[in-house]
Amino acid sequence: MTAQKSIDQMQFPGGLRYSKEHTWVVPSGNTVKVGITDFAQDQLGEVIFVELPGEGDEFDQDAEFGVVESAKSTSDLFMPISGEVVVVNHTLEDEPGLVNQSPYQDGWMLEIKPRDPSQLEAIFSAEEYLGLIKKEA
């Protein structure tokens, strides 16, 4: 995989939580939204396909929940926290490129009902995640 941007050019909004598998989570009422980070979309390149689970599916933390593919690579998606999928962003089926264009807004993937909200605190802050990817880069 080839990075298009330098880490300094990437966005990691402060109000979100981040996982080591490069997904983000943000609370939204009783549910949380999940997507992949600017770093992850940049590593993938132009996304051409996103496979997501169905509403009602339940996942443990770190469980595989989908696949995102570009012409150059395929990457499994892992759940940042455990919970039940309540809404899926079906727009990505026809417009997978939103993951690249707007990873934290229009490119969100799932809305889930957390099973254990304390897991949110145990994953990374933006600053901690930035430290992690600087080590990986």
């Binding site: 051409i48 396909f49 593919e69 570009s70 150059k72 089926e93």
Partner: peptide
């Protein structure tokens, strides 16, 4: 095309 025929499209270690 890729979404409709994904299973028929070969991907090697370097992608499609």
């Amino acid at each position: 095309f890729y979404r409709e025929r994904r299973k028929s499209v070969y991907r090697g270690p370097d992608g499609i």
